[in-house]
Design a protein around this nucleic acid. Structure first.
Length: 151
DNA sequence: GCCAACGTTGGC
DNA sequence: GCCAACGTTGGC
């Protein structure tokens, strides 16, 4: 079992939105590295840190789990969608997504708190210049985050 | 709104 | 394959 951090803009989909659904399709990823993580490595039951980005209070807002293996992101074929990709075809889809099931909303572990926690300093999301919307999390980092969330 | 950092595109 | 130009991310 693996662990991941997945960014979502709360204005697009917040932890509250995700908690209202049994699972949510993680559409809109348009970065090859992030896609490859979903397509090649994610398994049902993997742990997910649900991170709010591009907002007033960025940080980890909840715990979730991977609820499906990867399948084609339908928004790439929708010419009216913001995520439309004219170079992708249903025969050879370029972009994939997984379903994510939110398990619980937590008190926010803010980006500032994360940066101030030495045990989290190795997290990829905290590295200078890191922009990946999906990053692997080590078991040590996962447990350190859970310990901070339970404080 | 600014801007650093990164990813992608496309001409050569 | 190189790399300049451009677009995007995302914190501040």
């Amino acid at each position: 079992m693996a662990y991941w951090l997945m960014k979502s803009e709360p204005e697009e989909m917040s932890i509250d939105d995700a908690m209202d659904e049994s699972a949510v399709p993680w559409f809109g990823v348009r970065n090859y590295q992030a896609r490859n993580f979903m397509r090649d490595q994610m398994r049902i039951g993997d742990g997910v840190l649900f991170y709010h980005s591009s907002c007033a209070e960025p940080g980890i807002a909840g715990i979730a789990e991977v609820a499906s293996t990867a399948y084609p992101d339908h928004t790439q074929f929708d010419s009216k969608s913001h995520y439309f990709d004219p170079k992708s075809t249903p025969e050879i889809p370029r972009w994939m997504m997984v379903d994510v099931k939110a398990l619980r909303k937590t008190t926010l572990l803010s980006l500032t708190e994360m940066r101030n926690s030495p045990e989290l300093s190795t997290m990829l999301v905290l590295q200078k210049g890191s922009r990946l919307s999906i990053t692997p999390v080590t078991p040590q980092e996962w447990h350190a985050v859970l310990a901070l969330l339970d404080k």
